[in-house]
């Protein structure tokens, strides 16, 4: 990979910042719990882009950035499975997945 890379680091960081803000907006404003989960996935992707960017533009010796990114992807998969199982259970209990209508601690 010796092609000339003329993209400044800030361009990537701006993209990841905007992606994080969009994910935060989805988490804060959506009613459907599954849409909130999608917002969390967007935020995790923004963090992952940052990991890879700083790995590439940083020292370049270690592989910590990529190890972190792979760990984040694996944990995101586990988190999505658990969260969707909880959402299914909540839907079975409350007959809704809107987070502003689920306000009881006991079913």
């Amino acid at each position: 990979m010796n092609e000339p890379m003329v993209i400044p680091i800030q361009a990537y960081l701006i993209v990841s910042t905007l992606l994080f803000a969009i994910g935060l907006m989805a988490v804060l404003t959506r009613r459907n719990a599954i849409a909130v989960l999608m917002g969390i996935e967007l935020m995790l992707n923004a963090a992952n882009i940052n990991f890879v960017v700083f790995w590439r533009y940083g020292g370049g010796q270690g592989m910590e950035g990529l190890v972190f990114a792979i760990t984040v992807i694996a944990l995101a998969a586990a988190e999505a499975a658990i969260a969707l199982a909880i959402i299914l259970n909540v839907y079975r209990r409350f007959k809704t997945v809107n987070v502003d209508q689920i306000n009881l601690m006991r079913g």
């Binding site: 990537y12 996935e41 990114a69 792979i70 694996a74 995101a76 998969a77």
Partner: peptide, 25 residues
């Protein structure tokens, strides 16, 4: 950015796994 393996994992896990899981939910 030069992280080919991560791109493959991203497509496999996110596009192939998590999106399908979300669609099921």
């Amino acid at each position: 950015l030069g992280a080919e393996l991560l791109a493959g994992i991203q497509i496999l896990v996110y596009c192939g796994g998590i999106v399908v899981l979300i669609l099921f939910a």
